[in-house]
Computed example of a mutant assay.
Amino acid sequence: MKITIIGTGLIGSQLADKLTAQGHDVTTASLSSGVDLLTGAGLDKALADAHTVVNVTNSPTFDEKSVEFFRTTVGNLLAAGERAGVAHQVVLSIVGVDRVPQLDYYRAKLLQEELLRGGPTPYSIVRATQFFEFMEPTMSWTSDETSVRLPATPVQPIASAEVVDALADVATAPPLDGILEVAGPDRFTLDEIGRITLTARGDDRPVVVDAQAGLFAAVQGDVLTPGPNARLAPTHYRDWLTT
């Protein structure tokens, strides 16, 4: 199967390697390869003869400008896909994206989903929880030399490699015309994750619960955790930290 992956970051690069190892004909597309989603330049060549397109791009900003980024890029990608005869469009999204309207980036990602659902091509949406790899950067936003401040927001993080596994399975199967949620096996609050991470790193700073700290301070309740039908990955956060 010929598969084009739009985006070559943490997920896109792993996905390309996995699908290539499975024997698929994989093309990766990004600015560095001459593909500009905002203008559409290079898309027709990147999508030529592709059966499936997997979109794992991120907006360069997480503010209100991200809304227009996804509006433009999804429009260009769907139009190019229709011209190329693409049979399946896959997008990576976020668990809870439809339940946090106060976050600009989540509203933008929800628009991305809505445009895909309304487009001309059969589709699949994979919603993932926060990645293990992003836990420490999330902590750094509200850390100083003496403490780490985090809200008690419930999350159920997942290793990026296991998001890749789910994307590979979806990309090589018939379109869902719906949503698959994927998450890790364990539910924590962010402050719990902070303590677990600091302990594993030998860092003795205390974690202070602060409902106003960081990006997820705007999140109320357990909206970032998956529903009962989610695909749960096997790797535990504590085990991942040791490796």
Score class of each variant (00 low, 15 high):
residue 8 T to V: 14
residue 8 T to G: 10
residue 10 L to W: 00
residue 11 I to F: 09
residue 11 I to P: 08
residue 14 Q to E: 05
residue 16 A to H: 02
residue 17 D to T: 08
residue 18 K to Y: 04
residue 20 T to M: 05
residue 22 Q to K: 12
residue 23 G to H: 11
residue 25 D to S: 15
residue 26 V to Y: 11
residue 28 T to C: 13
residue 32 S to F: 03
residue 33 S to E: 09
residue 38 L to Y: 05
residue 44 D to C: 03
residue 45 K to R: 12
residue 46 A to V: 01
residue 46 A to E: 01
residue 47 L to M: 07
residue 47 L to G: 02
residue 50 A to R: 04
residue 50 A to K: 04
residue 52 T to S: 07
residue 52 T to W: 13
residue 54 V to C: 07
residue 59 S to I: 04
residue 59 S to F: 03
residue 61 T to V: 10
residue 61 T to L: 07
residue 65 K to R: 13
residue 66 S to K: 11
residue 69 F to C: 00
residue 73 T to R: 13
residue 73 T to Q: 15
residue 74 V to L: 15
residue 75 G to W: 01
residue 76 N to L: 06
residue 78 L to V: 06
residue 85 G to Y: 13
residue 86 V to Y: 00
residue 91 V to Q: 12
residue 93 S to C: 03
residue 93 S to W: 01
residue 94 I to H: 06
residue 96 G to N: 02
residue 97 V to P: 07
residue 100 V to A: 09
residue 101 P to L: 03
residue 101 P to R: 02
residue 103 L to G: 08
residue 104 D to A: 15
residue 105 Y to I: 14
residue 107 R to W: 14
residue 108 A to M: 08
residue 112 Q to P: 07
residue 116 L to G: 01
residue 117 R to T: 15
residue 117 R to F: 10
residue 120 P to A: 02
residue 126 V to Y: 08
residue 128 A to I: 12
residue 129 T to F: 00
residue 134 F to D: 15
residue 137 P to V: 04
residue 139 M to N: 01
residue 139 M to V: 04
residue 141 W to A: 14
residue 143 S to W: 09
residue 144 D to H: 10
residue 144 D to P: 05
residue 145 E to P: 00
residue 145 E to N: 01
residue 150 L to F: 01
residue 154 P to M: 02
residue 163 V to D: 10
residue 164 V to T: 05
residue 166 A to V: 04
residue 168 A to Y: 12
residue 169 D to N: 14
residue 173 A to F: 04
residue 173 A to S: 15
residue 174 P to S: 13
residue 175 P to E: 05
residue 176 L to Y: 14
residue 177 D to V: 13
residue 180 L to I: 15
residue 183 A to L: 11
residue 189 T to R: 05
residue 190 L to T: 07
residue 190 L to I: 01
residue 193 I to D: 06
residue 201 R to S: 13
residue 203 D to K: 13
residue 204 D to W: 03
residue 205 R to V: 06
residue 206 P to D: 00
residue 207 V to K: 03
residue 207 V to Y: 05
residue 208 V to S: 10
residue 209 V to T: 15
residue 211 A to G: 13
residue 215 L to M: 04
residue 220 Q to L: 02
residue 221 G to T: 01
residue 221 G to I: 00
residue 223 V to W: 11
residue 225 T to I: 06
residue 229 N to T: 13
residue 229 N to L: 12
residue 230 A to H: 05
residue 231 R to N: 02
residue 232 L to H: 13
residue 234 P to V: 09
residue 237 Y to I: 05
residue 237 Y to C: 09
residue 238 R to C: 05
residue 238 R to K: 10
residue 240 W to F: 11
residue 240 W to R: 07
residue 241 L to W: 12
residue 243 T to R: 14
